[in-house]
Structure formats: C-alpha cells, structure tokens
Design a binder for these strands. Structure first.
Lengths: 208, 208
DNA sequence: AAATTATTGTACATAACTGGACAAAATAAC
DNA sequence: GTTATTTTGTCCAGTTATGTACAATAATTT
C-alpha cells in the first residue's frame, strides 16, 4: 500500500467552488486554484485530472446545497398526517426568502454560480455548455414539480399553466441572483421577490 | 494634409460591438477584433487607443439603441394634445414586447450586452466595473421616470412605490435577457413578460 | 527491504497575446 | 517635390499559462 492522500479532497472542491464563484470560470487557472488549495500542479492533475472535470464536480457540489433543492416536490401521506409539511406554495415563498437572505449575506456578492455561467457561456466548451443549460432545465423542473403538487393539492387553480409559471419563477430567480450583485440589502431583494410572487399568484400563506 | 482614414470608424465600432456581444469581453483580443474589422493592430492602436477605450464606445453605441430608450419619460403638452403618445404604462409594455422580439430574432441568442457584463464582471478593471454598474443604474432610472409620469398622469395609483416597481421591472428585464439564451421562442418570452407585468400592476391597455 | 502510491519540482515545447518602437510604403493636398 | 497623416509589418521583450514527462523524495503497508 502506498502513501495516503494528505489534503482533504472535499475541502479542496469547496475551495475551488469559491474560486470559480468569486472569479468566474475562465479566470481560474490550474496554477491559481492549486495554490489556493495548497497543492502542487502535479498533485492537482493526479487528483482531479483537469480543470473541466473539477468544475463539473464543483457544479454538483453547488447544486447540492442550492435553495431550490429545499422545495417540496412530492406528496407523502406520512408527513402529511404529521402536519409537518410546508405547503408547496409556501415552500416556493420560503425558497425565495432563503435565496434573498443568502445573497444579501454574501459579502462578496457573487450572485449564483450557475446563472453566472449562463452569462459567461462563451468560455465553456460545447460539452460544458450543454451541462450548464441542462442543469438550468432541471432546476426549472423542480419548480414545475412543486407547482404541479400545488395544483393537485388544490393550492393553485386547476387551470394553472404550470409550465409557464415555472418559467416565470425561474426568470424571477435569475433576475434576483443577477441583481443581488448590485442590490445588496436583503429587504430590497425581498421586496422584488414578494411583489412579483404576489402578482403571479404565489401568495403568502393566509392565517385562519 | 495626409492620408485619410480608409475604413469606416462607425462601422468598425459596430463590428466590435458584435464581437464583444457574441464572445464576451475577455475573449475579444486586439488581434481578433482588428482582424474582424479588417485593419492591422497598428491601425487599431492609432484609432482606438486601447481595447478598454473601444469597449466604452461600444457600450455607448449599444445603449443608444436599447429598447429601454424608447420609454416615454416626460410630459409634453404638445404631443399630449395630438393624442399621439403612448401612455407611460403602455410604453413599458411595448418596451418588453420589443425586447422579447429582439431577443427571439437574434439567431445567436446573445442576450443583452450590458447584463452579460454583469455576469462577467470579474474581467473588468475597477473603472469599467463602475461604468457598467452605473449604466445599469441609469437604465433603472428610465423605468423610474416613466413610472413617476404614470403616477402623475393618474395611470398608476398615487401610493405606488415607484422605486420598488422600477427595481422589479429591471429584475424582470434582467431575467428575460438571461433566459433568452435558453428560451428562444418569442411567445415563450412574451408569456413570462406579460404574466409578470400583469401581476405587478403594469397592465395592458383597456379598450373603451 | 520491497512494493506501492502521493507529493513535489523541474524541464520542455507550445500557445497566445501584449505594448511599444520604428521604419517603409501608401495616400492626399499643396 | 514636400508635407502630413494613415497603414502596414516587423521586431522586441515580456507575460502568463498549459500539458506532458520524468525523477526524486516521502509516506504507508507488507
């Protein structure tokens, strides 16, 4: 058996995520990210293979903790009985609230890594572009699942065009992520989110 | 008197605009843009000075024809009398319609040059960053002027928070510009725009 | 000690570009 | 022809980074 790996690989991926998020994909070189992680270029190649492969891992990591992952997308009778669950519509509202909070608290105002890639698409090869666009599609699918559940549970009208609404929600999220680079106050971002959500029918919970 | 300039300078700036718009700021080198224009590097330096100076000119040109420039922002009793003017709210709706049309018709789906810069901000020096952010602020001011006029003309309620609404409109525009890289159909973009505008109180004209 | 794997540093050839300098050639008016 | 400006190409020194190869060193187990 040989030498074991010294550095924490997961932590290295997190450090890399921050670099890509802060500086943009094309400004991060193998040299610079290796320095940030604290390893040599040779070790980088041994561990990650290439910058592209590392970046794909970074996107997975980023997406894993994205606010949209907390949306309620499925019906579960067990949890329904417990009365623990947030309604689908409320989970959308909460998601936007969390999003605004995270962006406001980000001292570097990095916006959203994935949406930043959308604005910077020319720097990626065709495969990476396809990956990024696909992720954005999948994220829209999360909105869609939640909306469909809301319709099924009677929270939204039966005739709701869930595709269109999912698109509007994603457009709002894209806008807020981008504007968060300029508008730093949480209440400002919340104001945008709330007025638009109210307007498109994603209403705050009513208290009985 | 010496030799006159051979190439059309205005046309060169347009070609450069397209390059920056298509490829992103940092992918455009002096060498590549000189080639596209059809001049030597030496002539480029003689004419434009630097890539930064050229880019500032490009932003001016881009902004000059931006859909938002067509918003109605001022009261004019002459034109009011002629009954020619679009109402402020209608001019906002038209603006979004134009925006969706332009983006859908763009075969290269370039989005918006200025908003792309927002996602790519790390590639600019501090001065250029300030310039870009300032332009985005000015563009929001255009929305704000139109909204204020709409309130003054009684088109919007007196208690309308025009600052917040301008922010929401800009967020929507940012979202649509970005999404237009994925959603290419004009009717898809229009659907997003219209549902959101309806929801935040920018309603389509009512016919008497 | 031998085998295995991780880490490092170095060398190499390559790529792509930059700004500045400079001079020759070209173009226009006088 | 002279003057003035534009265009061009070339050179230079510099920058930054890349992927690959490779060998030495280090760390772990058997």
């Amino acid at each position: 058996m040989g030498r074991i790996i010294e550095f924490n690989r997961d932590q290295a991926v997190e450090i890399a995520m921050h670099e890509f998020w802060q500086h943009g994909y094309s400004e991060v070189s193998i040299k610079s990210v290796s320095q940030k992680i604290g390893i040599s270029r040779s070790s980088f190649y041994n561990t990650f293979g290439s910058i592209e492969l590392l970046f794909a891992e970074v996107l997975d990591l980023y997406e894993y903790d994205a606010p949209i992952r907390k949306l309620r997308t499925a019906y579960s009778s067990e949890e329904e009985d417990k009365g623990n669950l947030e309604t689908p519509v409320n989970s959308i509202r909460s998601m936007f609230q969390t999003l605004c909070k995270l962006r406001a608290r980000d001292s570097e105002h990095r916006g959203c890594l994935i949406i930043n890639c959308l604005g910077d698409l020319n720097h990626f090869n065709a495969q990476a572009q396809t990956d990024i666009l696909g992720r954005i599609q999948v994220l829209r699918g999360e909105f869609h699942k939640t909306l469909r559940l809301a319709v099924n549970l009677g929270e939204l009208p039966k005739h709701t065009d869930t595709h269109k609404l999912a698109l509007s929600l994603q457009t709002l999220a894209v806008g807020i992520n981008s504007m968060s680079k300029i508008i730093h106050a949480e209440e400002g971002l919340n104001a945008i989110a709330n007025s638009t959500l109210d307007g498109i029918g994603i209403n705050a919970a009513k208290h009985d």
